[in-house]
């Protein structure tokens, strides 16, 4: 192997990655521009709200309740090392609302919704349904992409709020059930400790993660390769990209909200 080979490969990979980032950014910009221009498809938006929001509630609720419960046990156990067991309500609340609620809901949405959107749109592409839409004078961006992105932007913050509450409830259930916390005092400490910025950051993260999850599903679906392998690759890549972008966006948003 010549010395230039790894350098060239690195350069090509970097250029390829930058080109992919550019394509995704252009796709997202096109989606946003179509959000503001008619025609609108309210039935498609309602279906997307149902699929992304309502049907994700069980997954979000179960994820949050177990995470909140485990978090209470961890904080109690860790806090006991320096006689700080009493901070369980406060740390569960801040942990769930600021970080775990939005991130876990975002990742569950990436797993459940991004994969589903990518597989559905990719299948539509390989079976020529997207071409059929065009020949029927219907813009696929408006009919397929905009409703899903809009629905995710609107409903994932609500899912995050639900996840936050259920996560806190999970911590409360464990703390009052097996760690001898007073139920009323636990709730009072939780409410007193949380600040409006904690909740706002949680909802903003939910909005951003929802947008990322839906956009990645739509992008990889619309740019799928041929056949079953193309659909599989689009689905896998969409979830990988959404998960990584959600974690990266979480870091940036946490920095923006709490590091200043």
């Amino acid at each position: 192997m010549t010395p230039a080979t790894p350098l060239g490969a690195t350069g090509r990979a970097t250029l390829g990655m930058l080109a992919a980032v550019g394509r995704v950014a252009l796709f997202a910009a096109r989606a946003v521009s179509h959000i503001l221009r008619p025609p609108f498809y309210p039935r498609e938006i309602a279906l997307a709200l149902l699929n992304i929001g309502w049907l994700s509630l069980p997954v979000v609720g179960l994820t949050a309740v177990f995470t909140g419960a485990a978090l209470a046990l961890q904080i109690y156990s860790g806090g006991a090392r320096f006689n700080a067991e009493a901070v369980v309500p406060q740390i569960v609340a801040i942990g769930m609302v600021r970080e775990l609620g939005p991130v876990l809901v975002g990742l569950m949405i990436a797993a459940r919704v991004t994969s589903s959107i990518a597989a559905e749109i990719a299948t539509m592409k390989v079976t020529e349904q997207i071409d059929a839409l065009v020949t029927l004078s219907t813009n696929p961006m408006k009919y397929l992409v905009v409703p899903r992105v809009l629905a995710a932007l609107a409903v994932v913050p609500a899912l995050v709020a639900v996840g936050d509450v259920i996560g806190i409830f999970g911590g409360w259930a464990v703390a009052t059930g097996s760690l001898n916390f007073n139920p009323a005092a636990y709730l009072k400490n939780t409410v007193d400790f949380l600040e409006p910025l904690d909740v706002i950051s949680s909802l903003v993260k939910g909005c951003a993660f929802g947008g990322i999850a839906a956009t990645m599903g739509c992008y990889f679906g619309m740019n799928s390769g041929r056949g079953a392998q193309g659909v599989g690759r689009a689905t896998k890549s969409s979830v990988e990209a959404a998960a990584i972008l959600i974690l990266a966006a979480n870091f940036l948003l946490t920095g923006a909200f709490f590091s200043l």
């Binding site: 025609p39 539509m124 079976t127 020529e128 349904q129 071409d131 059929a132 029927l136 004078s137």
Partner: peptide, 25 residues
């Protein structure tokens, strides 16, 4: 246009597939 594989929309019943263009635009 008649597509090779039909290209019918899976999520819509048959009559809405046929009337797709007549229900929007």
């Amino acid at each position: 246009m008649l597509f090779q594989g039909g290209a019918l929309f899976d999520s819509l019943p048959v009559w809405q597939n046929v009337a797709f263009r007549l229900l929007r635009g």
